[in-house]
């Protein structure tokens, strides 16, 4: 299972991480930046969920006849991180609302222009 294909979930993690990171850096629209940040964080959620997996393991619910369970701890951890991610998104979006009110734009170039050199 350690072939390139067997580790496909990690490839997804890496792809999402790079896409998200690129969007954060390259997008000049503030909302797009937040979305990029979200994709970046989501990739980490998948990473954590992946590492809880055990080969042949069942979902971590007590049941007769099942011996091997997936590790539930990373799932619990990432629940916390998801909450943090939601809070960050909410805060970022509300900042964007106020930036829009103050500047009348959510494009980085416009904002920089209005403030002179920032």
């Amino acid at each position: 299972m350690t072939t390139v294909l067997g580790l496909y979930n990690y490839w997804i993690v890496i792809a999402l991480m790079m896409i998200g990171f690129y969007v954060v850096i390259a997008a000049s629209n503030l909302i797009k930046k937040i979305i990029g940040l979200n994709i970046f964080q989501t990739s980490v959620f998948i990473l954590y969920i992946s590492i809880g997996m055990r080969e042949g393991g069942a979902a971590p619910i007590l049941k007769e006849g099942v011996e091997v369970y997936a590790n539930p701890l990373p799932h619990v951890l990432i629940l916390t991180a998801i909450v943090v991610g939601v809070a960050t998104t909410a805060l970022g979006l509300s900042l964007i609302v106020r930036i829009k009110e103050a500047y009348g734009s959510i494009e980085e170039d416009d904002i920089a222009e209005k403030d002179g050199s920032l």
């Binding site: 940040l37 590492i51 970022g92 900042l95 930036i99």
Partner: peptide, 27 residues
Amino acid sequence: DRRALTSAFQYLIMGTIGATMLLIGIG
């Protein structure tokens, strides 16, 4: 100053990237 908003936003983006990297490392 209204630039407080853009500074907070910039810090939010960079700070979240930093914290997420810490999260990856801990993982």
